[in-house]
Amino acid sequence: MAGSEPQTDPGKWDDLTVRMASSAAMVAVGAVAVVLGGVWFQILVIFAVAVMIWEIWMMIAPDLPTPGMILAALTASVLSGMLTHESAFILLLFLVVPIVGAYMVKHERLYFFCFAFGVQVAGWGLLTFRADYGFTWILWLISVVVATDVFGYLVGRVVGGPKFWPKVSPKKTWSGTAGGWAAAGVVGVVFAMLTNAGFIIVALSVVLSFASQLGDIMESAFKRRMRVKDSSTLIPGHGGLFDRFDALLGASLFMLLIASAFNVPGVNF
């Protein structure tokens, strides 16, 4: 913004090497699963969702790890079982883990219920997009989220300026937020040119970018309430899986809503 000076502190880049290395490893594993699809993508998503349920529990009740592991195993069992059924009533199984976990935990029950439910539904959305709409849609979804995160991070660090929502996420700036939108728009332009989606996908990419940022902010607010820095320490430079995939979950929930409300066509190169 006019009148603001770029941040020049060299220390702000200290975590970039570790962050990029972890990102590269996750991208490699994720890319293989996305390309292969089928059971490989299902295994990755179910594993990630189960771990995030465990992380949600551990942020609320860090002194009780065993129930968290039981809930993670229950999550994997429920989602795996849902893949073998097509009845609409099977969706009620999304409530099993949130209800059981809310009963078991001694405090913050509403938070556990809401976040556990949302993570499961978002994970199911990713499985649905890959299976029903194919590789191109899921590639676009992930590309928008990654572009938003990477360019939002870089622009925010270089340009700096006013904070987006300092009480919830003190590191996020308006410049980084706008940088993420711009990068998502570019991704949309690329997919509009290479696929039969049409240029409406450019606007949808920007809105999806904002949805991914909201997912990140919601998780930041939850961590602030729980007074923790990261959801866990599983990934060097990133914290936990929930820290890494919060934006993807927000985007998935948004696209699941769009796909449910409108007749979303297939998109192909």
Rank of each mutant, 00 (worst) to 15 (best):
I138L: 15
W140F: 12
L141D: 05
V145C: 07
V146S: 07
V146C: 04
A147K: 04
A147L: 05
D149K: 03
V150E: 05
V150W: 05
F151T: 02
L154S: 10
V155G: 08
R157M: 09
G160M: 09
G161C: 08
P162M: 10
P162T: 06
K163Y: 13
K163L: 14
F164A: 12
F164T: 04
F164S: 04
K167D: 13
V168R: 13
S169M: 10
S169F: 01
P170R: 08
K172L: 13
K172S: 11
T173I: 07
T173Q: 01
T173Y: 02
S175H: 07
S175W: 03
S175V: 00
G176H: 08
G176Q: 05
T177D: 01
G179K: 02
W181E: 00
W181R: 03
V187D: 09
V190T: 02
F191P: 07
F191C: 05
A192H: 06
G198A: 03
G198E: 00
F199Q: 12
F199D: 11
F199L: 13
I200H: 14
I201Y: 02
V202I: 14
V202P: 02
V207Q: 00
V207R: 09
L208A: 13
S209V: 05
F210M: 14
F210L: 15
A211V: 07
S212V: 02
D216C: 02
E219D: 06
E219F: 07
S220P: 08
F222L: 15
R224H: 00
M226Q: 12
K229C: 05
D230F: 13
S232I: 10
T233E: 14
T233A: 15
I235R: 12
I235C: 12
P236M: 06
G237D: 01
F242I: 05
R244Y: 04
F245A: 14
L248M: 13
L249S: 10
